[in-house]
Design a binder for these strands. Structure first.
Lengths: 225, 225
DNA sequence: TAATTTTGTTAGACAAATCTAACATATATA
DNA sequence: TATATATGTTAGATTTGTCTAACAAAATTA
């Protein structure tokens, strides 16, 4: 069984690599900065985690999770986010207070506890920060933030913000039926003038690339494990 | 701030001494047996806790809690019993499963969490084992188990069991209106024949010392802190 | 390519909590 | 009271997780 500290290293590695969606390995200094410890300390732990076959690591190289390391990391993330949801929904903690307490609660060892908590909260999909919660099987939908311009044709996504805050732009946003949390589907792209067809609330509209570039969306990237 | 381990030693000392209602100090071996560690380990910790002014202790002597040590111990007991109540009432854990998980949860450091949990559970007075839960001020009603013969005149207590299991005795118990959880008040004691007058459900009856000796009761001993 | 900077490693130290084995003191018993 | 038993202490070792300071390798830049 992994110690609290080991769990924290595995979680850090998971968040830096897999969940970031942007890289597959992490450097020693990077992990140290993420955890607020010294690189020397991380180095010792990397050797230990390698010996336990929880990470892949070679001297002077970068680190990544093995299958069993990833499993533990996802369990910790699941516990963290379920506890955050509990604190927020049931105990009326505010959005910004839940994290520090969940940092402690995530290390409580009891499979039964966490599965019962999951049921008590009615199997939530998102924590109070909007991050996805892994299910009991350890499956986790990874979402990535980007602009609507970058979304692929045929994909669905969720609007989570705007880049431009001018009145003109926001009025246009409104007119198209767009708002925070609104689901958007990209239908097509015209080769001739680059206009993008989107579907919002079953209505189809065309928007310019310039407009699309100012809509921040979140889309499901992949399913982990 | 006390470490998890220090908290466990303080809690053990509290339970052995103050909460037991029977003694005011604990020996090194006794503490070791209670915690499942070796006396040598306890000895080291006693020195440390003394240095932190959390206990009173002299070489080759017995140990007891100081005011600040007691405060911490009661907070840990409060957390333990509130978490047990949460697991039992909200997550449908069974009576005998709650303890081991609460042993972990009792060390979570967040005053806000425990006070909100208390409110969420509607300020319970007892945990699933029937033990009293200290309130937010650190006050705790201590109950002591003894026989009805030992109860003082004028005091109220609660029947929690019997010593004799013969049919004759149990029928007599029934006839007097006694049962588990029944409140009993000791009215008087006759100097002439030692008979004891008790009040049960507003009816007064006389019982013999032999009878009283076979009724196990729980009574509020005092209010701690 | 050579020098500099960034990144990673090693060695040695420390604190916390535990152990075992040997020793010391206190209490009980013959 | 002398011995035996129970209780408590000490010294030295171990594990875990951390540090600092010195060193080594890799990457970047002039």
């Amino acid at each position: 069984m992994a110690s609290n500290t080991e769990e924290n290293y595995l979680k850090a590695l998971f968040q830096i690599t897999i969940e970031s969606g942007s890289k597959i390995e992490a450097g020693t200094n990077e992990i140290a900065a993420h955890l607020g410890v010294k690189p020397a300390t991380v180095n010792d732990m990397l050797k230990k985690l390698k010996a336990k076959k929880l990470i892949q690591y070679e001297k002077y190289g970068k680190s990544s999770l093995t299958k069993s390391g990833k499993k533990i990391a996802i369990e910790v993330v699941r516990k963290h986010r379920l506890w955050e949801t509990f604190l927020f929904q049931k105990l009326a903690f505010s959005w910004d207070e839940v994290h520090v307490v969940a940092e402690q609660l995530e290390h409580i060892q009891s499979k039964k506890l966490i599965d019962k908590l999951d049921a008590f909260l009615d199997y939530p999909a998102f924590d109070p920060h909007g991050d996805t919660i892994p299910n009991a099987k350890g499956e986790l939908a990874i979402t990535v933030k980007k602009t609507l311009l970058e979304e692929k044709i045929g994909h669905q996504c969720k609007m989570i913000g705007v880049k431009d805050n001018s009145a003109a732009f926001l009025q246009y946003v409104n007119k198209l039926g767009l708002s925070i949390n609104q689901t958007i589907k990209v239908i097509s792209r015209q080769p001739f003038d680059d206009l993008i067809e989107i579907e919002v609330n079953k209505k189809i509209n065309s928007i310019s690339p310039k407009f699309a570039e100012n809509i921040i969306i979140e889309c499901k990237e992949c399913m982990i494990k």
